[in-house]
């Protein structure tokens, strides 16, 4: 079998109208990939703390720079989104909220909760870390 043959596309992503359901579905995967990258940094942070050399000061300085803050806010949102939407998935696994109206309601709830939790985390974090 050739290793790369044309694959069928259904639905065709180029002409299919984005919906809340499909956008949240792909966002779950996208945030999962982003969090995978973030978890590498998290382990690097732990090793830097343990190492005792200049690695920690360099990493800490980077994380407190504006680009570091942007990355951390992105990871915070990704974490809360993946967490909330993951709970939504677990409830579906137990056959709760599978009606179309519930799916849209829980979808908007997940989006709102992720934004609120991200803002709350950073407001508390900035107040505590000043």
């Amino acid at each position: 079998m050739p290793s790369s043959r044309p694959r069928p596309r259904s639905p065709d992503v180029r002409i299919y109208k984005p919906q809340l359901t499909s956008v949240l579905s792909i966002a779950h995967r996208a945030t999962g990939v982003l969090l995978s990258a973030g978890s590498v940094l998290l382990v690097a942070w732990l090793v830097a703390v343990a190492d005792g050399s200049n690695a920690y000061a360099a990493l800490d300085g980077f994380l407190r720079s504006w680009i570091g803050i942007i990355l951390l806010v992105g990871w915070t949102f990704s974490l809360f989104y993946h967490l909330c939407n993951g709970i939504r998935h677990l409830s579906w696994d137990m056959d709760f909220g599978f009606e179309l109206a519930s799916i849209y309601l829980s979808g908007w709830l997940v989006v709102s909760a992720s934004v609120v939790l991200t803002l709350a985390t950073w407001i508390i974090g900035m107040a505590a870390g000043r």
Binding site: G52, Y56, A57, T76, L79, T121, G125, A128, G129, R130
Partner: peptide, 12 residues
């Protein structure tokens, strides 16, 4: 997340 917030001021 709660721990990282609580230790945001901590030095090494």
């Amino acid at each position: 997340v709660a721990s990282l917030i609580a230790h945001a001021r901590d030095g090494q």
